[in-house]
Every structure is written in structure tokens, then in C-alpha cells.
Design a protein around this nucleic acid. Structure first.
Lengths: 398, 398
DNA sequence: GTCATAAGTTTTGGGTCGAAACAAACTCTG
DNA sequence: CAGAGTTTGTTTCGACCCAAAACTTATGAC
């Protein structure tokens, strides 16, 4: 580590502190937050401002007046954006998000991609990406592209297996045609990336919980374990496969080869079958049926909640994760399963006496496409230097 | 981060590189390993040598001769040691280990501590610690004390619950009387600390696997999840409770309040009962009976292996951990359960087709006391600066 | 004995931060 | 409305650390 990397670290710390604040901070605030001097904070902020990563805002008239020279509020710039893409069984999505967390463009195409061919789908996703990028002001910098897929992802953007798409061993990163001016995408698991939108409410801004288990998915159930704000991907990238936790070794057989997997109780198709509906009935239909008092639907939801409790108790026992966030199709039945789920957890979690695990329903904006964009923007926060090399942006005299 | 912490980081990196090498490295080797210049490596090494953290060894006569000035081999010093302590149900242990990994003193007292009082036990452990420290040469620096206990440990050295000792809510760190010249101990979970001896073969020297699941225990079954060489302790410090993973929701009741926990199949008492022996019969007796063809013992081992497979498959699915290390009393039946365990894992682990999880038996030296000492020594490696403040040790003219 | 080679050391220069003094911009008070 | 008080932002200076490069030392090869 040389003296130059001190600069890199401090730039990152100042930028992270700036993004983490709720109110736009001043240079002095950032000096305090990063425990450096105002002199150093000024030097670092000036470099970030010069390249548009941060911008100086007009003083807030609403702010209570205090003695002393008023500080200059600093806000995330809108010059740097990231592209977030998602392939789901039922749709393709592309979003453009800037460093402030504003969704600058969004486009979603509904489709049935079960058993589809990867190459044409990725070509269409490329066109979608091209489209959402087309309307950005000149000078905008795309810091990266994140691509979420519902399956096991290995190093180098290889999708090993996406059962519900019917894809296996697809070199997603290589097959995706990147829009002009952007590089190859970073491919990630859908659940991991959706979880990012819970651990961060905006790029670099921490969410309510640093540690939680996020559940996602539709037909299958994916999961992501977030510790200290970072998804745990595991040695080979396929950690978090909560859908195949054994609920009952004597339970129904699962496509994965095992028996009694959680997916066979709480997956959307299993849920619909148990409720006496067509397997392709959406989870919202089941929730509606249960709310209207349909006994079969109520029983199915109850059964799913108990299975979730058994499976998640295992995860909580093993990982000591205090919060469970229900996302994906489980959002629909979240409030319905919560009582039986919390009850089961309280009985089966060893440490429930000290700290009972909490169950929450994911916010509506929790999508993997957004999380993929956040993740790319977070790379800029981790090391801003690559984006501070260009010409200094014009800046009116003060 | 100021310019001075660059020094701290580089000292740590050089020391870590020096300890990680198999053969004693030279200054030039360390420069290459840490990708700095020889000039910088020299400055850093000189500081470490001046305080006895590293020592210059005599040139190795065995080494193949090469052109060029021969380098000076650098070895870990013996001046800095750590104290490793362990309270187990059946014994108390104290070891003193130096930075080279040499056990400088060891003492173990057998006892039955089930249902014991914490305070007198810790007093006796303090006396044991005093004893193992008594014979060290003057000038030896004790960098820290680690204390392993078989239970849930929270912040600040509080033991929340150790079911087999019968202790609960014991302020272990505060009650332990530290030997003269040492500070209060760092209290840790027995499984986590035993796992350290697998992830490091000596202080700072990485072991064979960076990621693995370590199983430990006796009556109960403890576990530790090691990712990237570090045990995962979880939000509140009680991650890794593999003993209470549900194997079968309809299984026998467990003392923890749940049913069908792994402990009820593979704990030493459960194992003995299933084999038709007295519950207090040691696991080695069961292993011996099984090896001699006793059908009940064979069945009990088989049952334990299957239960382990079901439970560990869950953990592997959720965490993507490629290696399982059987420690504690499971070492005794390790080779016996391996076939059925590996078979069960292959069937129940989702990713077994790509990478089948491996099962290993822990080495004989894998004790929590040793791991506790390693952990303390590792603090010196992480930040050597606090131990570089004293007077410079004498050093003959060269 | 001389040359080639590699390790270790010394010197020099550039980059970064902290401390402290200073300049700027505002509120408060009489 | 002027001056004191206060806080922010800037400038200057000094200290620290590393990289680069030249230099010294110690060995093997011929």
C-alpha cells in the first residue's frame, strides 16, 4: 500500500459518508463523519466536485439559521449512472439509476420466457438497454451494467442453471450485446441483487437492517443472506439456496433430486396446487382467496407458513440473522403467513428467547434490476479514482 | 485514514506474508510478496526485527547455492506469546504458544464440570494459566489471552448459556483472574476457536481450506462456519448452532424446546443410547463397538451419519461451503460415518453435481485452547504497532 | 581475478495528511 | 449599524511514508 492509496481510501470514505447522510452534508460535516480535518475534507470534496461525483447545492432556505459561516450542502451528482437489467420468467426489465438514486429511465417488457433460448432473449435485453440509455444528457457516464438472472451464477458471468428459464451453462456476460459506450455486464443472482435494495435505500445509503435474510422468487424460492450490508455469495456463488432446505425428509419429491424441499410447500406452483387452484395461478390470486375465507387457500397458506418457519429457523440457528424479509411472490402472502411463521420461528429458533427474529415484507420497489444498478454504483463509491481522471467539469466562478 | 496508518497496514502485510511462507523468506521475498520495493520491505522488516517480532536466522546451508548476495532468512520471533485457555465439560486446559506456533507450555486438568459453579472453576483456570506462564524467559511478552467456552458468547465476554456446564449469564471475562502482566481474556466459542486451528496451521499461516464448516462438541454439537479464514459469529455471536438444525420435525424432543434436532441423533449421549450403551459411554467406545461388528452400534453410527447428512446438506445449500471438518467427539466416528454422510450429502445438496462437498476429519491438535492462542497472536499480525513501542532489543553488530 | 547477479541500503523526490493560522460569511447584541 | 462571536472553508507549513534509482555488499561462474 503506497501513499496514493491513502487518497483512494479517503475519497471513498468521504463519498460514502456523503451518500449515507440523510440531509446534504457540508465539508465540515464530512470531516467530522470521517474523522479527518476540514482541510482534508475540502481537498477530497473538491476533487469529487470537479468531476461531478458530488455537486454543490444552493443553501437550503428552510435550514434553521445559526451563527457562523454557512456551509455549502453537497449532493450526489447526476452525471454518473448505472444500468440495471433483469431477466425474469415473466418479463425483461431495464433501468437507469444515478448516484442520487433517482430512476432516470425504466422500461419493462412482459413475456413468457420459460424454456426460451438465451441468445435472442439477451439480444432483446440489449435493445431494451440501448433504449433506456438513449435519452440521457451528453456527458453522462455509465459506470457499469448489472444483470440479474434467476439462477446460479458462477465467476465470469456464467449462468450455471436457471431451472425456471430452462437455461443452463449460458455465458450470459459474453452473449449480452452491450450498448455502445458500456462494457460487459456484471451478472448476479436475482435474489442477491433484490436484497441490495433492502440493505440500501439509495446507492451508498444504508437501509434499516445491516443483516437479514431476503427471500425471493416465484416458482422456485431463492434467497440471499446479507451480512453487514453485503450478500454472502459463498465459495462458488450459489449460497442462499433456501428453496432447497429440507422441511421434511419424508415430504414430496423435488425436481432437485431431494425430498421435502421448502419449494414444495411455499413455491408459487406448490402453493396454488395446495389451494386447489391451477398451478399457474398467481400468488395474488391465492392471497385473495385466502382473504375471502376460502378454506383450501387458508390451509395452503398456513402450510406454507409452517414450512417457511421450519426452514428459516434452520437458517437463523445457523447464521444468527435477526431479520427475515419476504420478497418476490411471498410479498403477496407476507401478512397472511406472518403469524404462523413468527410463531414457528419462536418455537424452533434456539436464541428466540433473547432476540426473536423479526419478519418483514419487502418494499414494492425491491427489484433485482434496481439492485443491480445500485451494486454497480457502489463500485464507484468503493473506489472513485477511475472516474476522476477525465477533464474537470466546468464550474462557474464563485 | 492518515499517512501514518499506511505504515501500520504495511507492517501488517509484511508480517502476515512472513508468517504465511513455508520457508523463511528474505527481505527481497517479502518485497515481492507484498508488491513493494526492497527499500520499503527493509524498513518494515527492520522495525519488526528490532522488537523481536521477526528474527534473522542463520543462512540455511541446505539451500541451493545461487549467484548473488545471499538473503537473510527471517523467522517468527519467540518473544511474543499468547495464552490459550479452555473450559470443557471434562477438563480445563491452558497452553502458551509463540508466534512461530510452538507450544511453549501446556497443562490440562481432568475434571467433571457438569453443573459446576463458574467462579471457582475460573479461579482454578487462573491458577493453571499462572502456572504455564511461570517458566517463560524474561522479556517474553504475552500479547493476549483467549478463553474458549462451550456455549453462546455475547459481546464483552458474557457467556449467555452453556447447557452442558450448566452455566448461564456468566460474566466470564470479568470473573476470570488474569495472571500478573496480562489483561482480561477474550472469550470465544469453543467451536469457533477450534476451527481456527484448521484454518491456520500456525499463527498467520493459512491452512488447507479457507472456507469450511467445522463441527465440534460432545454431548451437544457445536459448529463454526469459516469463510475466508474467519469464523462467522453472526449478529449476536451465536451463529453456527448446527446442533439444533432440524433433521426431522417429528423426531425426538430436544432440550432446546424444538424437536428432531441433530443433537438428538449425533450427540454423544444420543449416540450411546441408540447403541444400547450407557449414555455417558464415550464416543470412542461406540466407535470400537461398531468396528467390532456390534449391530446396535453400527446402526447408531449409521443413523447419526444420515442425520448429519440431512442437517449438513441444509447448511451447504444455504452457505455454499465446500468442506466439512469433523471435530470434537465426531473425530472418533469420522471414518465410520463418512460413507453414509457423503452419500446423503451427494443426494441432498443442490450443487453436488458440480462440486461435491468433501468430508474431512479434524487433525488431533485441533483444540479450542490452541485456537484461542492463535486468535490472540493474530491480533498482533493484524496490527503490530502496539508491540513495537518498547525499547529496541539488543542486537549484535553485524 | 574479473564479471554477473541478487540482496540489502542510502538518497532523493513526490504525494498525502494534520496542525495551525487565516479568510469568509453569517448571527447576535447593544 | 458596528463589533464581537462563531462556524465554515482555505492556505501554509511541516512531518511522514513510499517509490525510484543509484549504490554497496556478498556470493557464484568462468
Amino acid at each position: 500500500m503506497d501513499t496514493g492509496s491513502v487518497r483512494a481510501v479517503n475519497l471513498s470514505r468521504v463519498l460514502a459518508a456523503a451518500l449515507a447522510q440523510e440531509e446534504p452534508p457540508t465539508r465540515a460535516d464530512l470531516a467530522a463523519a470521517t474523522s479527518t480535518t476540514r482541510a482534508t475534507a475540502t481537498r477530497l470534496v473538491d476533487e469529487l466536485v470537479a468531476h461531478g461525483v458530488l455537486v454543490e447545492a444552493a443553501p437550503d432556505a428552510e435550514r434553521p439559521r445559526r451563527p457562523g459561516r454557512p456551509g455549502i450542502p453537497l449532493q450526489p451528482g447526476t452525471r454518473h449512472v448505472a444500468l440495471g437489467l433483469q431477466v425474469e420468467v415473466s418479463h425483461l426489465t431495464a433501468v437507469v439509476v444515478d448516484l442520487a438514486g433517482t430512476v432516470r429511465a425504466r422500461r419493462r417488457v412482459e413475456d413468457d420466457l420459460r424454456g426460451s433460448d438465451a441468445e435472442p432473449v439477451l439480444a432483446r435485453l440489449g435493445a431494451l438497454a440501448e433504449h433506456v440509455l438513449s435519452d440521457l444528457p451528453s456527458g453522462t457516464v455509465v459506470v457499469g451494467t448489472g444483470l440479474a438472472v434467476p439462477g446460479l451464477v458462477a465467476e465470469g458471468g456464467m449462468l450455471l442453471r436457471a431451472p425456471n428459464l430452462g437455461w443452463s451453462d449460458v455465458a450470459v456476460a459474453a452473449l449480452f450485446p452491450p450498448p455502445a459506450g458500456t462494457g460487459p455486464p456484471t451478472v448476479g443472482n436475482e435474489a442477491d441483487l433484490a436484497a441490495v435494495t433492502v440493505s440500501s435505500t439509495a446507492p451508498g445509503r444504508p437501509g434499516a437492517h445491516p443483516d437479514f435474510l431476503y427471500l425471493s422468487g416465484a416458482t422456485g424460492i431463492g434467497g440471499s443472506i446479507v451480512l453487514d450490508g453485503h450478500p454472502l455469495t459463498g465459495r462458488h456463488g450459489w449460497a442462499g439456496e433456501v428453496g432447497h432446505v429440507t422441511v421434511d425428509p419424508d415430504g414430496p419429491p423435488c425436481a432437485c433430486g431431494s425430498t421435502g424441499c421448502l419449494e414444495q410447500y411455499a413455491g408459487s406452483r406448490a402453493l396454488a396446487s395446495a389451494a386447489g387452484l391451477d398451478p399457474s395461478a398467481g400468488t395474488s390470486a391465492i392471497a385473495a382467496a385466502a382473504r375471502s375465507g376460502e378454506p383450501a387457500a387458508i390451509a395452503a397458506v398456513e402450510r406454507a407458513g409452517t414450512a417457511l418457519g421450519v426452514a428459516l429457523a434452520v437458517v437463523v440457528n445457523v447464521l444468527d440473522v435477526p431479520v427475515i424479509v419476504l420478497g418476490g411472490h411471498l410479498r403477496e402472502i407476507g401478512e397472511l403467513v406472518r403469524p404462523v411463521l413468527e410463531d414457528t420461528l419462536a418455537r424452533r429458533v434456539l436464541s428466540a428467547g433473547w432476540v426473536a427474529p423479526r419478519v418483514e415484507v419487502a418494499p414494492a420497489h425491491a427489484t433485482a434490476a434496481l439492485g443491480a444498478a445500485y451494486t454497480e454504483l457502489h463500485r464507484l463509491v468503493t473506489d472513485p479514482r477511475p472516474w476522476l481522471t477525465g477533464p474537470v467539469t466546468s464550474r462557474e466562478a464563485r
